[in-house]
Simulated scan of single mutants.
Amino acid sequence: MKASAKHNERIEKMTFSSVYPHYVTKVEKKGRTKTELHEVIEWLTGYDELKLQSLIDEKATFKKFFQNVKLNPNAYLIKGVICGYRIEDIENPLTRKVRYLDKLVDELAKGRKMEKILRTE
């Protein structure tokens, strides 16, 4: 499935703060914690709690959220299908980064061990 330019543009303009509460709800519903969610986000992006909160407060778009991020060197190990798209086949770099985050949140909610989510094994 190939993402259209319109789809990529929609993701670019979407605010992280509009999606974040859904991430929290999703993981907490499955017995995981907000702290674990933040650990996953920090692993991928390097953002600590303060930086994350400032991006939420300023209603940063995903474009801005990922603009200066140096992704974790093991992020390329995040593979699979999320929202109908095979992550490793996504050509748009921003869309791929957003889907990396979505996949990590999914894995957390599904009860996967942190070592596996954070690709430390």
Score class of each variant (00 low, 15 high):
45 T>W: 01
81 V>Q: 11
3 A>S: 12
41 I>W: 07
95 T>F: 10
85 Y>E: 11
75 A>T: 01
59 K>D: 00
98 V>F: 04
23 Y>L: 09
70 K>C: 05
5 A>F: 04
63 K>Q: 13
34 K>T: 13
100 Y>G: 05
104 L>A: 12
99 R>I: 07
51 K>V: 13
57 D>L: 14
100 Y>Q: 05
36 E>M: 10
55 L>I: 01
57 D>Q: 11
110 K>Y: 15
65 F>C: 00
1 M>C: 12
38 H>K: 12
24 V>M: 06
62 F>C: 03
87 I>D: 04
92 N>S: 09
107 E>P: 03
87 I>R: 03
15 T>C: 09
41 I>A: 10
31 G>A: 10
40 V>C: 11
49 E>Y: 07
37 L>E: 07
107 E>A: 10
73 P>V: 03
95 T>N: 05
25 T>P: 01
34 K>R: 13
54 S>L: 04
64 K>S: 01
61 T>E: 00
80 G>E: 06
50 L>Q: 14
38 H>L: 12
7 H>P: 02
82 I>Q: 09
54 S>E: 13
37 L>V: 12
3 A>V: 15
94 L>S: 07
66 F>C: 01
83 C>M: 11
72 N>G: 07
14 M>A: 15
59 K>P: 00
11 I>H: 06
69 V>I: 10
2 K>S: 11
38 H>F: 07
54 S>Y: 02
89 D>L: 04
47 Y>A: 11
121 E>V: 11
26 K>V: 08
107 E>T: 07
53 Q>I: 04
42 E>L: 05
35 T>Q: 08
15 T>L: 09
39 E>R: 09
93 P>D: 14
89 D>P: 00
33 T>D: 07
18 S>E: 10
2 K>R: 10
115 E>C: 04
80 G>S: 08
60 A>T: 00
47 Y>I: 03
73 P>G: 04
105 V>Q: 13
30 K>Q: 15
110 K>P: 02
21 P>F: 03
78 I>N: 08
39 E>C: 04
23 Y>E: 14
25 T>Q: 14
104 L>H: 13
99 R>A: 15
66 F>D: 00
98 V>Y: 04
34 K>F: 01
119 R>G: 10
6 K>S: 10
46 G>R: 06
14 M>S: 15
27 V>R: 03
111 G>A: 05
74 N>F: 06
71 L>K: 08
115 E>L: 06
39 E>V: 06
92 N>A: 10
90 I>Y: 02
15 T>A: 11
106 D>P: 00
80 G>L: 03
60 A>Q: 02
107 E>H: 09
18 S>Y: 02
45 T>E: 09
70 K>Q: 13
1 M>S: 14
70 K>L: 09
46 G>L: 05
69 V>T: 14
75 A>F: 01
1 M>N: 12
106 D>K: 00
30 K>I: 03
50 L>R: 14
54 S>M: 08
66 F>G: 01
47 Y>S: 11
109 A>D: 12
112 R>Y: 07
18 S>F: 02
95 T>S: 15
32 R>Y: 08
47 Y>H: 13
62 F>H: 13
102 D>K: 01
99 R>D: 15
118 L>R: 03
36 E>H: 07
27 V>F: 07
54 S>D: 06
70 K>D: 13
101 L>F: 02
102 D>H: 08
99 R>G: 09
112 R>K: 12
